[in-house]
Amino acid sequence: MTTGKVLAERTYQESIISRRLELRRQLGYIVLLLPTLLLLLVLFVYPIARLIVTSVYDGNQFTLEHYRRIVEVDLYLRVLRTTFTIALQVTLLCLILGYPLAYFLASVRARTARLLMILVLIPFWTSILVRTYAWMVLLQRQGVFNRWLLELGLIDEPLRMMYNRIGVLVGMTHVLLPFMVLPAYAVMRGIDPNLLRAAYNLGASPFQAFLRVFLPLSLPGIAAGSLLVFILALGFFITPALMGGRTDMMIAQLIETQIRTQLNFPFAAALAAVLLIITLVIFAIYNRLLGLDKMFGGGY
């Protein structure tokens, strides 16, 4: 009886001590986290919150003036439309080029795939400015492609491949293609080949097996890649600024000029808020469909 009491008492005491220790441990973690959290709150969360406030509050009162301007002025609507169109076109191009490549890489031996993947990763880790420069050298009026085509007699005068939509699409697809290939490849590698063998055994033709088994199983990878490419394309600045024509202005360029040449911060803030909301909505979809943790788990 007494032993039982003593034991119970001790367990109780120990639980308090261990709870205290646990609390101290957790406090320690919070202290470790604090500097990063503080930096992000001050230089990321707060600035963006303030940006949004600036877009709807002119110092005295609430206003939707800047948003009205976006919707009412043709030029700005056109920029929004162009931004969406280009993002969509680039996503489609990445899908068309990226899916077969990922499929191919997933079907060869892992060693070979790893070697070939280097060819995807080298441009991936090269600065966007360098890659844009390379394309400018290739595509410009006096550029490498035009010179070759002229020498071969295939054309009589230089083709316009830059400072228009072609240049933007070629350059942006080049930059964003790895974002499609890497998640698509990761998912395809994980597909159990036995499932396809099973389909063959049940009498499916290779095409049927691909359509009914492989394609549905690879969907998470291409959904991840497509959403990622689309979001990144929406906020693109460097390539359209350097390789686009006048009519290819995208929203990031508009925001930049509104601040740097028009000095219209509240209007730029409204544009940024629109871009932010669209981006966040797509991310919410992404999170719902695939989970955000998958996004960065590609291993590369």
Partner: peptide, 24 residues
């Protein structure tokens, strides 16, 4: 939530981060 905040600079378009930070 904190985890989300920490990785979000990767997904928010750079132009937004740029002008937001410029603003403060």
């Amino acid at each position: 939530l904190i985890n989300l905040i920490i990785v979000s600079p990767l997904v928010v378009p750079a132009i937004i981060v740029a002008i937001a930070i410029y603003g403060i």
